[in-house]
């Protein structure tokens, strides 16, 4: 499966990833938690080969093939799909055309089954298949972005903040679908999220990222039991004074 070995990514002189290693277990959902600017999306983009000449150091392997330094198109063809942050659907194409673009590298006959599959997962997309993608609501666009990636029948899916800008109800729905895809089709997933509670509820293994490094890793149970995660990511305060404010500021132990 996908193995990331000690990669460092630079944006100019700024180091966004400072030595990240990661291995995705097959058929499981792995989550990466972290706040803004922690380097989560950079990690995804580096894996997908979307940043020129990056990673600066380290290697990325898919089974026995080395995939860093490859073109995005080739990486996609090896079975990796990336649902980018902020959806990035083709706004001036119809929903159906968007989905067809997802199946661009595949034969039309194969794509037909996948289209059925996607419509079954997201009945809403079927209703709107003739509409322009840009005229969909945020939630529908997210469904479309996920559906479009599913059309590639990927082995590994990287989902970058699927909950961004969605209502709690929709977030629940989207995560339900992610679970379902994982269970039914055995797609390995890497889930990048700021919504820690939701991500931990829906993953098999989790990492916490800060300042371009993984600072903590473990099963969701372990992470949820961790005091720092509870306080800084789940917002569960460990000690509150009678008057309702915190008595002292907790230090994160991993710093």
């Amino acid at each position: 499966m996908l193995q990331v070995k000690n990669i460092e990514t630079l944006y100019g002189l700024v180091m966004a990833l400072r030595g990240v290693s990661l291995e995705l277990p097959e058929n499981k959902i792995t989550a990466i938690l972290g706040s803004n600017g922690a380097g989560k999306s950079t990690l995804c983009k580096t894996i997908m080969g979307m940043l020129d000449d990056q990673p600066d150091k380290g290697t990325i392997w898919l089974d026995e093939t080395r995939i860093d330094k490859k073109d995005t198109e080739d990486i996609v063809n090896l079975g990796l799909a990336y649902v980018p942050e902020g959806r990035e659907v083709f706004e001036e194409l119809t929903v159906l055309e968007n989905l067809q673009m997802g199946a661009y590298t595949r034969k039309t006959s194969q794509a037909k089954d996948d289209l059925k599959r996607v419509y079954e997962l997201f009945p809403r997309l079927k209703e709107r298949q003739k509409q322009l993608a840009g005229h969909l609501s945020g939630g529908e666009q997210q469904m479309l972005a996920i559906g479009r990636a599913l059309m590639m029948r990927p082995r590994i899916m990287l989902l970058d903040e699927p909950s961004l800008g969605l209502s709690p109800l929709l977030v629940k729905e989207i995560f339900g679908t992610i679970q379902r895809v994982n269970a039914e089709y055995g797609t390995t997933m890497l889930l990048v999220e700021q919504n820690a509670a939701m991500a931990l509820k829906n993953c098999h293994y989790g990492y916490v990222m800060e300042n371009g490094r993984f600072v903590l890793a473990g099963t969701p149970e372990e992470l949820m039991a961790d005091e720092d995660v509870r306080e800084f990511y789940l917002g569960i305060r460990s000690e509150v004074s009678v008057k309702g404010y915190q008595r002292y500021k907790r230090k994160k132990r991993w710093r």
């Binding site: 997908m48 979307m50 073109d71 995005t72 198109e73 996609v76 063809n77 799909a81 990336y82 980018p84 990035e88 659907v89 083709f90 706004e91 001036e92 194409l93 055309e97 067809q100 673009m101 997802g102 661009y104 590298t105 039309t108 479009r148 590639m152």
Partner: peptide, 22 residues
């Protein structure tokens, strides 16, 4: 398919790459 891919490329090159469009 190629024609639609051309339109897709114009709208969002990054995303088009992610679809495997060369």
């Amino acid at each position: 398919k190629v024609g639609v891919a051309m339109k897709a490329t114009q709208q969002n090159q990054q995303a088009a790459r992610l679809m495997g469009i060369r």
